[in-house]
């Protein structure tokens, strides 16, 4: 059992090394960090939106307008970030699947957006 899993990881390593030797045309999405990035990337546009909106309101005097506007924009931007990251993870997984020509890449652990 253990021998099998190490074998699997070794082949995985080899494929990733082979991928690394050829220059990638675009930046890889680095899916191992996927889960770590999600929370901050979702929340920070909202925080920045609220902060900017509050500041613009104080500056312009149109009190609830900019706060509301930028808050909603922030939420949209947060979801947009999530969507883009999901797209990149998907792209990466597909690239791995086409790279490795044997069907043992069915394990769903690589780049699952958990956390």
């Amino acid at each position: 059992m253990t021998a099998h899993t190490t074998d699997k990881s070794m082949t995985k390593n080899m494929t990733s090394k082979q991928k690394g030797s050829t220059p990638p045309p675009r930046a890889p999405a680095s899916p191992p960090l996927g889960g770590l990035r999600l929370t901050a990337d979702f929340l920070s546009p909202i925080v920045v939106g609220i902060f900017l909106g509050f500041w613009l309101d104080r500056w312009s005097g149109a009190t609830p307008l900019f706060l509301l506007l930028l808050f909603f924009l922030g939420v949209l931007a947060g979801f947009w970030n999530l969507y883009r990251m999901a797209q990149k993870i998907d792209e990466h997984n597909r690239a791995i699947e086409t790279d490795a020509n044997h069907p043992d890449s069915g394990n769903p652990d690589s780049g699952s957006p958990s956390g």
Partner: peptide, 20 residues
């Protein structure tokens, strides 16, 4: 719609980077 969203997402980069 997308330009303000992208702009806000870009402006929030230093926040997400440091807060994380």
């Amino acid at each position: 719609l997308l330009v303000p969203i992208e702009l806000l997402s870009y402006l929030s980069r230093p926040v997400s980077l440091s807060v994380r």
